[in-house]
Amino acid sequence: MKLEKLFSKMPCQILCAGSDLKRTIRGGYACDMLSWVVSRIDSGEIWLTILNSVNVVAVATLSECACVMLTESVEMEADVLSRAKEKGLTIVTTPLTTYEAAVSISRLLEAEQTTAGRN
């Protein structure tokens, strides 16, 4: 599923539109410890977190994740978003909890796979 399609099916707001909203998402990773994320998230996965400092931008860039989804309606400061824009990162925020967002993404990806399987 492409990022832009996922965003259209979830309650979320784009805070920073990165360089590739047509990027394909392959899954997600939920964690608020940077060293775990940088080491374990795969490129093409959505990172679910409540962290919103500039270090999130560094870790997301290094790990090449598909996008950062801030949960629980967490916002990001303008200077951090500006850094994200420089790096071509996509950042969105959702009112869902991390658990709810993960379940929602999982169901959407599964539904798309099922549909693709029928076609």
């Binding site: 410890m33 775990w36 080491s39 962290l51």
Partner: peptide, 15 residues
């Protein structure tokens, strides 16, 4: 800020 997981040196060794 999300640091301090105690994974720094182990992560270096891993990669």
């Amino acid at each position: 800020m999300g640091f301090g997981a105690g994974m720094g040196l182990p992560n270096i060794k891993k990669h």
